[in-house]
Design a protein around this nucleic acid. Structure first.
Length: 516
RNA sequence: GGCCCGUUCGUCUAAGGGCUAGGACACCACCCUUUCACGGUGGUGAUACGGGUUCGAAUCCCGUACGGGCUACCA
């Protein structure tokens, strides 16, 4: 493992302020949630601010409901922003579409300083350029220093022509003028020094024809104005880092640039984890259910699948990070205490649904019955089981939680406590069933009618009677279970009887005896 | 194609030059349990390859291979 950031913390003099900057274009997937988590942990660890900024500069990709969804997800995860569209703060607005004018002003400043230029090329002209220059060795020609002087922009046009086009209202963009032979580098908190040769960097658009900034301009301006100290984002942003370095240099000074960490990607079973393939993988990719407002199609989320947020985040935290010990179960408090960016792995990690489920199982087992109660209760009620006695349900939860990996498992594991089993797995008993056993149960159900009602007594009476009748108690337990539960599963059978109560137990024995 | 990032059991990972390469998930076996689980014990299983440097390399350097990302007026 490469560890690089010792000196970064030494130089961490300013207040820690980090931001999660999602684009509201759909559901929040695994990778996004982990990015939030690392931001959140880092902020809380250093008593800093966690900011959520909505990056909605692409109006064509605006999806209604997506912004709300993001905040709902954060709430479910228990990661509450200190500043955001919903939480206020001194550095707003926190929606980039509402900061439009600021970006333009900086773009114009760059033009004036000679670091950027107006470009009037139409989409058709750009397409033509790409087609004309395309070769086997260069399948995707870039708008860069090689060709900028052959295009229609303020570098090739005279000052008068440029002004005329501008005053005529001709559509234009502003592009950064990337220098030709510059070596750029920065120290990534996870990867160490990363170098770039500016000759391979293209003249990215900074301000679009609709007046909106692109990500490149907006992120730099906002990170500066919001006084962001550390900037964490996915590895897919690494190639555009040189553009951002240049902008920091031109606009606000390299010394004010946040420390960067480019997080490794989370991969699916066959490489890149894609939002669309959620159903195909057989496991969710979104944190919560997401319904596409256009198609009406719903993609299942971890929440609805039955994950506890604690477990979901615990697993995500470990996907690319560990504290060096062999501990795997971490609460949010633990994570805040132990987290460090320098121990984040640099390689991508494949998402393992089996392990995710294991974490959930662990969290269910370690959660108190009362903590689980409201969630299980809701689940049962949506499945048509009315809960009248919370104390009883709590007891039942304690009996069955070892057997539940996902929250919905509580339904089949507990429904027989509330309803007479709809089906009885009689086939499991019939082969070994006989008249003696039947007589045993007739006698047993009579005997327990007058008995003290607890698991221990029930079990003792069961064994005594079996011995009396010369039958091995073990051979009778499975039939008894089937009578009460309907199948071969569930907690110890006498505990089930205890919870069921005298009347119901006797009733189920009688009912089953008619079928066998 | 170019640029950037990466590479330890199937998967997530530990090991900051000195090891029988450790743990977890999954899998298998056994124990516990006359249900299903939990739990316990054990097992299968990895340093991509080739060169250096060194007494000694998973670890440092170079190359190769492979994987991933980026290459939009998307983020």
């Amino acid at each position: 493992m490469k560890r690089v950031s010792r000196f970064i913390f030494a130089s961490m003099s300013r207040k820690v302020r980090v931001r999660f900057a999602p684009s509201p274009t759909g559901g929040l997937h695994l990778g996004g949630v982990r990015t939030v988590l690392y931001n959140y942990l880092f902020a809380k660890k250093y008593k800093g601010d966690f900011i959520v900024r909505i990056e909605d500069t692409d109006q064509s990709r605006y999806v209604p409901g997506a912004e709300e969804y993001i905040f709902d997800t954060l709430k479910w995860c228990g990661m509450i922003p200190d500043e955001s569209v919903q939480h206020g703060g001194d550095f707003g607005p926190y929606r980039q579409s509402e900061r439009k004018e600021r970006y333009k002003q900086f773009a114009l400043q760059l033009v004036n300083d000679g670091y950027a230029y107006y470009a009037f090329d139409t989409p058709e002209e750009l397409e033509k350029m790409r087609q004309d220059l395309k070769t086997e060795h260069n399948p995707t020609p870039q708008y860069d220093h090689h060709i900028r002087m052959k295009m229609r922009n303020s570098l090739t046009l005279s000052s008068d022509e440029t002004h005329k086009l501008l005053s005529d209202g001709e559509r234009f963009v502003i592009r950064i003028k990337v220098p030709e032979n510059d070596q750029l580098s920065f120290t990534d908190m996870i990867r160490g020094e990363v170098k770039f040769d500016t000759s391979t960097v293209d003249d990215k658009v900074l301000l679009k024809a609709d007046g909106m900034p692109t990500y490149h301009l907006a992120v730099v301006v906002d990170d500066h104005q919001m006084q962001i100290s550390h900037s964490f984002r996915g590895e897919e942003w690494l190639p555009s880092a040189p553009v951002h370095i240049l902008l920091w240099k031109y606009l606000f000074g390299l010394e004010n640039m946040p420390q960067w960490a480019h997080l490794p990607l989370i991969l699916g079973p066959n490489g890149k984890l894609s939002k669309r393939d959620g159903a195909k993988y057989g496991f969710p990719v979104f944190a919560m259910n997401w319904t596409d407002p256009k198609t009406g199609e719903t993609t299942e989320g971890f929440k609805e699948k039955g994950f506890l947020p604690e477990a979901f985040l615990n697993y995500l935290a470990l996907l690319g990070w560990n504290d060096g010990s062999e501990q795997e179960i971490f609460s949010m408090e633990d994570l805040i205490e132990r987290f460090s960016m320098e121990r984040v792995h640099s390689a991508g990690a494949k998402f393992d649904y089996e392990k995710a489920k294991w974490f959930n199982h662990e969290w269910i087992k370690k959660s108190s019955n009362s903590f689980l109660l409201p969630q299980v209760k809701t689940l049962l009620e949506t499945n048509g089981i009315t809960i009248v006695d919370d104390t009883l349900l709590e007891k039942i939860i304690g009996l069955i939680k070892d057997r539940c990996t996902l929250l919905p498992d509580f339904v089949p594991q507990s429904s027989f406590f509330f309803q007479t089993p709809a089906t009885i797995d009689a086939d499991a008993i019939r082969p070994k069933w006989n008249e003696d056993k039947k007589k045993f149960f007739v006698a047993y159900s009579e005997k327990i009618l007058n008995s003290e009602w607890n698991a221990v007594t029930l079990e003792n009476m069961f064994k005594e009677l079996a011995t009396e009748k010369n039958i091995k108690p073990g051979e009778l337990q499975l039939p008894f279970r089937i009578m009460l539960v309907g199948g071969k599963f569930g907690p110890p059978v006498f505990q089930i009887a205890e919870v069921l109560g005298k009347d119901e137990t006797v009733k189920r024995i009688d009912g089953a005896l008619k079928i066998f």
